[in-house]
């Protein structure tokens, strides 16, 4: 589904990501962990194709196609979707209006998804304007449900979300990633950034990666990795010579 090879990304004059290799196959969910400022969000933004960063080396392939220089909306159309850690406020634009524009032939599903995420009261609100932390995440998940991407990138979906809403969001994301479909038939893939790991209770992630200072320091079982980080912090990863 996604193959990243030798990716180097610069922001301004500084290289933020170095030498990134990552392969995510159909049906797999990967977890990305790492300390603040290590480059996790930057990687997702590079995959989505945002401006403000420059891919100086390497390639990103999606569904077999080199998308490294492709405009954002074409990547979205190919099936890449992203939940933003901090989405911008689009004042004036109503959430309902955006969903109407993006839903296409799923227009009939919008209100069901909105009810599911308890967002039905937000359709006439300007996107993210005055939304609470948890409401922003629910709005993001709702937009993704309407979009139904094949490859879902989630940038800290549970941060700032209360326990009840984590269940709600976790179940919605599980639906997005077809966790109810048998692994053999599952088509949707995911890349999830998390600091707490709470979201993993809903997702059964297949692989974990630890990023420090713009490079991968570790690949492995996400639960094991999380356990190490929880007990001894990232210094263990930094000291680790396994990679």
């Amino acid at each position: 589904m996604l193959e990243i090879e030798d990716l180097h990304v610069k922001i301004g004059d500084r290289e933020v990501l170095h030498d990134i290799d990552l392969t995510i196959r159909e049906g797999e969910t990967h977890v990305l962990m790492g300390p603040n400022g290590s480059g996790k969000t930057t990687l997702l933004r590079a995959i989505m194709g945002f401006s403000g960063l420059e891919v100086t080396k390497g390639t990103i392939r999606f569904k077999g196609k080199d998308i490294t220089g492709m405009p954002i909306h074409e990547r979205a159309k190919m099936g890449i979707g992203m939940l933003f850690q901090r989405p911008p406020t689009v004042s004036g634009l109503k959430l309902g209006k955006l969903l109407a524009v993006t839903s296409g032939d799923r227009a009939g599903m919008v209100s069901e998804y909105a009810r599911f995420l308890h967002m039905d009261g937000f359709m006439d609100r300007a996107i993210n304007l005055g939304f609470s932390g948890g409401e922003i995440k629910r709005s993001e998940v709702l937009q993704l449900m309407v979009q139904q991407p094949d490859f879902v990138m989630l940038d800290e979906p549970e941060s700032g979300v209360d326990l009840e809403n984590i269940t709600l969001i976790g179940n919605a994301i599980a639906r997005l990633l077809e966790k109810d479909v048998h692994i053999v038939n599952r088509k949707k893939s995911g890349l999830v950034i998390t600091h707490t790991g709470y979201i993993l209770d809903y997702l059964d992630a297949d692989f974990g990666h630890v990023m420090c200072d713009g490079v991968f320091r570790c690949h492995g079982n996400p639960r094991e990795i999380l356990k190490v980080i929880k007990t001894s912090g990232y210094k263990e990863c930094l000291a680790c010579q396994k990679i």
Binding site: R75, A76, M82, F84, V90, L93, L98, V101, Q143
Partner: peptide, 29 residues
Amino acid sequence: IARDEIEYLMSRGLDEDVATATIIRGFLD
């Protein structure tokens, strides 16, 4: 119009022109 707002909508599948027009429409709303 802020670039990040346009790109936010583009990441939902709207091309740049539609994203821009959608934001302008919201601005006038």
